[in-house]
Write a protein that binds this DNA or RNA. Structure first.
Lengths: 227, 227
DNA sequence: ATCTAGCAGATTGTATGCAAGATTGGAGAT
DNA sequence: ATCTCCAATCTTGCATACAATCTGCTAGAT
C-alpha cells in the first residue's frame, strides 16, 4: 500500500465541480443565507487554490445564489419577503406557460407519468408524509415542464426553483396537500383535453400561493426594506 | 506635463467593467455569434491580465451570452431557431405578467408616460423610421415593466431581451408597426381599466409573434438540430 | 494519393505572489 | 465610560508563472 490514500471524490476537483458542490450546500442549508464564503477556507476545504474557488463564486453570484460585493467577499444571498413574492410571481408564470405548452404537446407517456405522480402525491398525503409529498409534487410539475418541450423554460424554472427551494419547503402545509391534489387533477384534465388557456390559468392559480391581492399588501408593507 | 497620458477610460478596468464592455460589443454585433473570445487577445485589448478577463467570460457564460467549453475557450453563443422560439415564448410570458401587474399597480405618471411612448411610436411609424420606432416601442414596454413593481421580473426580462436583441431587430417589419400601435392602445386601456386578465392576454398575444401553431411547426422542423 | 501517428505550438486551467482596500482591536482623548 | 482614530492584520483583486490539454501540421506507411 505505497499509494497515497485518495479522498472519496475524484483525484482533483475543478471549478465546475465546485459550483455544484457549493450549490448543493446552499440548497441543503448547509450554507445558510447570510453565511460568509471565505475564499481561502473554501480553497483549503476543497484542496484547490483560490482561483477555481473564485470562479465558482462568480458563477454562483450571476445565477443569484450568492452576493459578491467588491473587496468584501461573497455571502449566501438572503432574500427579502418582497423579493420572494416577486420570484413566486414569476415562478407561477413559468408554471402556467409549461401547462399551456404541455396542453399542446404532451405525449401519451408523459400524461400517464403526470397522473402517476399525482397519485403518488395522494398516497403520501394520506400518510401525512410531507417530505415525500413535496418530492412527488415536484416530479408532477417536472413532468409538465418536460412535456412543454421548451428547454429554455425548463432551465430557467430550474434555476428559479433552486433559489426558492429553501423557502418553499416551509410553505407546504399539511392541509393544503388535499387541495393541491384536486388542483393537480383539474390541471391534468385540462392538459389532456388540450385546453391550453384553462391549463395555463389553473396552473397559475395553483402555484401562486400569494395570489390575488395578498402579494400587493405584503409588497406595500415591506417596500421600504428592499434595499 | 510629466504625467503619463491616460487612456480615455478610467485608469484601469476591472472585471465588472469588462462584463459590460463585452456585453455591449455582443449586443451591438461588434462580436457576432460564433466569434471566438480569446483570453489573451482580450487581455491585451483591455490592458489587463487574463484573470479578470476569465472572470468576465464566466459571468457572461452564466448569463447565456457566451458558450464556454472545457479547454476549448469561449465563443459568442449562437442560437438555433428552436431556441429563439423558446425564448420568445418566455419573453411573451414576462411581458404578459408585467401587463397584469401594471394593471394592478401602475401610477398615474407611469400611465401618462406609457401613452406618451405609444404616441411616439405612432409619430415614427408615420415617417417609417424603423430605428426610432423600435426605440420608442422598447420604452413603451419598459414603462409597463416598471409599473409592474417587480424588480426580479424586470431584471430577468432585461437579461432575456439582451439575448434576443440581435435577432429581434430583424423581426420588426414596417407594416407591423401600425398593428403594434393599435395593440398598444388596447393594452394601455386594459391596464388603465385595471382589467388584469385582459391586459395579460392582450400583451401575450402582442409579443408572441410566433404565437399559435407556427412555433410548434418550426419546432418540429428543427427539433433534430437542437443538440 | 490518402490516412494515421506523433510532435510542436498555442490556449486554457490552476497555483502562487503581490498590492490595494477593508475589518478589527486597542490606545488615547473627552 | 464611551467615542474616535490609527495601525496591524486579514481578505480580496489582479498579475504572472507553470501545468495540462487541445489543435494542426508534417512525415511516413499503405
Amino acid at each position: 500500500m505505497s499509494e497515497v490514500v485518495q479522498d472519496e471524490r475524484e483525484t482533483r476537483l475543478s471549478a465546475d465541480n465546485l459550483v455544484r458542490l457549493l450549490e448543493d450546500d446552499i440548497l441543503n442549508s448547509v450554507l445558510k443565507p447570510g453565511d460568509r464564503l471565505d475564499e481561502q477556507s473554501l480553497a483549503r476545504r476543497f484542496e484547490v487554490s483560490r482561483t477555481p474557488v473564485r470562479e465558482a463564486l462568480r458563477h454562483l453570484a450571476s445565477s443569484g445564489l450568492v452576493d459578491i460585493r467588491k473587496n468584501q467577499g461573497a455571502t449566501v444571498r438572503r432574500l427579502t419577503t418582497a423579493e420572494l413574492i416577486e420570484m413566486f410571481q414569476v415562478m407561477a408564470e413559468y408554471e402556467g406557460l409549461s401547462a399551456r405548452l404541455s396542453a399542446r404537446r404532451m405525449s401519451r407517456d408523459e400524461i400517464a407519468e403526470m397522473r402517476q405522480w399525482n397519485e403518488e402525491c395522494q398516497a403520501h398525503a394520506g400518510k401525512e408524509d410531507l417530505d415525500r409529498f413535496y418530492e412527488a409534487n415536484n416530479l408532477f410539475h417536472d413532468t409538465i415542464f418536460r412535456g412543454a418541450r421548451n428547454v429554455f423554460l425548463q432551465e430557467e424554472s430550474r434555476k428559479l426553483r433552486n433559489r426558492l427551494h429553501v423557502y418553499r419547503r416551509h410553505i407546504t402545509s399539511p392541509r393544503k396537500m388535499a387541495k393541491s391534489i384536486a388542483e393537480h387533477s383539474r390541471i391534468a384534465d385540462a392538459i389532456v383535453a388540450g385546453d391550453e388557456d384553462l391549463a395555463h390559468a389553473l396552473m397559475r392559480q395553483h402555484v401562486d400561493l400569494l395570489a390575488g391581492t395578498a402579494a400587493d399588501v405584503l409588497l406595500a408593507l415591506e417596500s421600504d426594506s428592499i434595499g
